[in-house]
């Protein structure tokens, strides 16, 4: 009886290579068929290539090109050199958007990332975790617009938050949450984190489950308490997951747009604008496509640079890098 586990290469040599369209015979193929067979793999790649090439690479190149022009969509673009970049850097609103974006980044690291980790560690070892996990994850299935609408009501002067504060005797803390900076930005970060907490918690829970139990057992035998276990064992072993959660949060915070747009439109008085809102506003309200392009290039450069440096630093010795 032949060994079925033994892989033989003999039939392949006789019948030619296996392709997705079946095993192609070698005997007397027509020239057209041979050509088609040669380009066949590329045909399967074509939709993806068109999507990536058309939607991403072309857009990136186009945005970069228009960032050096003055263009209002209805008259031909005029070359403007570095004017848009200089205007952006000198514009006090750009500076404010930049600092608001940094607040968003800090807030996103503190609440969804640190909060998600804390929840994961707590939920990992308490009864009824399934129900709690579901409840915490639930907001993640809502669209940003819905989240923004819900929290807009929460934050009105007579909304749930202020009414609750008054009810529990903390009236001094009640305030118009979306009106003055930086409270409005912080309030929106809380709204955003309400939605982002669940996914990061789940990622950390998955990470915690991949830690070999024998390591934990060994540490316990060596006398490690919960604190030592967390800081010396779990946290270092969660590094790849932490890196992913941090990167996703930071990129997300730099791209913050929809929630701000729905809740305050960057206002009042542009006080809660983020870089993405500034970019959108310049493009689709002021029709300064070149200026918006420059903001987009600056924004993307920051995000890409951060991602590269952070991943290199964090995952240097990891299999992920």
């Amino acid at each position: 009886m032949p060994d079925t586990n033994q892989v033989s290469t003999e039939p392949l040599r006789k019948e030619g290579p296996i392709t997705a369209l079946g095993r192609a015979p070698l005997e007397a193929p027509t020239r057209a068929l041979a050509l088609l067979r040669k380009i066949e793999p590329y045909l399967y790649l074509l939709p993806a290539l068109l999507l990536v090439g058309g939607l991403l690479l072309y857009s990136v190149a186009h945005t970069f090109a228009i960032s050096f022009t003055d263009w209002d969509l209805i008259t031909p673009p005029r070359f403007a050199g570095l004017k848009n970049y200089i205007d952006a850097i000198r514009d006090p609103t750009f500076t404010r958007s930049f600092s608001n974006t940094l607040i968003w980044t800090g807030g996103s690291l503190l609440l969804p990332v640190a909060g998600g980790l804390l929840l994961a560690v707590i939920l990992e070892r308490i009864p009824g975790q399934r129900v709690l996990k579901t409840l915490i994850y639930l907001p993640a299935i809502l669209s940003t617009t819905v989240v923004a609408a819900i929290w807009s009501y929460v934050y009105t002067n007579n909304g749930v938050l202020n009414e609750t504060l008054r009810w529990v005797g903390l009236e001094a803390l009640a305030r118009p949450w979306l009106v003055f900076a930086p409270t409005n930005t912080l309030a929106m970060i809380v709204a955003s984190s309400w939605r982002a907490l669940g996914p990061s918690m789940v990622l950390f829970l998955v990470g915690l489950q991949t830690i070999p139990p024998e390591l934990i057992e060994a540490a316990k035998i060596d006398g490690a308490g919960e604190r030592i276990l967390f800081w010396r064992i779990k946290l270092p072993l969660l590094r790849p997951i932490t890196a992913i959660v941090v990167i996703m949060s930071v990129i997300g915070s730099f791209m913050t747009f929809d929630l701000v747009w729905v809740m305050t439109q960057g206002g009042p008085g542009r006080s809660s604008e983020t870089l993405a809102v500034t970019m959108y506003r310049q493009a689709f309200i002021m029709w300064r496509m070149g200026y918006a392009g420059a903001v987009a290039v600056i924004l993307s450069t920051i995000v890409i640079a951060f991602s590269i440096f952070y991943l290199r630093a964090t995952l240097k010795r990891s299999a992920l890098w």
Binding site: L21, G22, P25, T30, A32, L33, L36, E40, L43
Partner: peptide, 18 residues
Amino acid sequence: NRNCIVFLRQLSALALIA
């Protein structure tokens, strides 16, 4: 024959893209 089937499949793929 198999040649024909393969050829028709490839033709269909091209036609779909076109």
